[in-house]
Design a binder for these strands. Structure first.
Ligand code: MN
Ligand code: MN
Ligand code: ZN
Ligand code: ZN
Lengths: 141, 141
DNA sequence: TTCACAAATGCAACTCATTTGCGTTTATGA
DNA sequence: TCATAAACGCAAATGAGTTGCATTTGTGAA
């Protein structure tokens, strides 16, 4: 995604536009996979803002719905740009490779079914993550 | 679940049977909701083993598939007895109440669809967790 | 453009769930 | 009963994430 586009996203979210915030959002908007804070920092390299700043940044991006937290098994939190639309992930339990999986009507159907639940008034988010063994790792064994 | 039953589960999993391990497994097998280490310790009360022991215990239960880690958003890890069979959770983003949701054919269908993926050879696990606002919290606003 | 103020940033210190090391105790099965 | 591997407790370490505070920077209004 282009830098000006990132600025627009920030402005639309009532976010202050700074170089750091643009950089971080730009990287996230180009990554096909969810990233950890450490990965972000590494990708930013020498021009990276302080780690704490990245944490605070992501927190505010979450508030505005610009990024989403992906609950893949990992000791660190993973974040991904929400602009890609609804989709899920399949992650290899051996090599940790992540592949995107298009959202299918199926999960929407379940969501609707659950809206009929007598205890919950609304469903605001859902996550569907899969784990398996990729073909390469299968061959190795 | 009865204590002797817990012992059997441990033995079947090639686990050493100790009082502590029985106690923890017994509590988990009675809880309809996933529990954190802190909750386990509190429930065990004065007879609780050291926290570290609970951590190590759960790690080995995970290895044997006796418990599963539930990826609901929480600062602590949540564990639940696997003996209940496949199901998911819906959690209130306001009060953090958790409700069980039966597994529906839907997720199985998606699983099957993904088995046709050309990058993954198998899918071993999946998690489907929902977030929403419960009726009580909706009323409060 | 200028200016005042809210928001962002950096640094250091802190929190807190989880892990690790190690010496001791206990369960198991031969 | 005995040897051995596993579990346990305690203390210390780890490491992701948070918080306080002084400083800088972006923004919107004058
Ligand atoms: Mn993705
Ligand atoms: Mn459950
Ligand atoms: Zn793999
Ligand atoms: Zn609620």
């Amino acid at each position: 995604m282009i830098k000006t586009k990132c600025k627009d996203i920030l402005r639309n979210g009532q976010q202050v536009v700074t170089q750091s915030r643009c950089d971080v959002l730009c990287i996230l908007s180009k990554s096909q996979h969810p990233m950890s804070v450490a990965e972000l920092k590494q990708t930013l390299g020498k021009s990276s803002p302080n780690v704490v700043t990245i944490y605070r940044m992501l927190e505010s991006f979450l508030d505005k719905g610009i990024v989403r937290r992906v609950p893949l098994r990992s000791s660190e939190a993973l974040f991904e740009f929400t602009g890609f639309g609804d989709h899920h992930h399949i992650s290899c339990i051996e090599c940790h490779k992540i592949e995107e999986v298009d959202d299918c009507a199926v999960s929407g159907a379940l969501k609707n079914a659950l809206k009929k639940s007598n205890k919950f008034a609304s469903i605001t988010q859902h996550t569907f993550e899969l784990y398996g063994v990729c073909k390469e790792c299968t061959k190795k064994k």
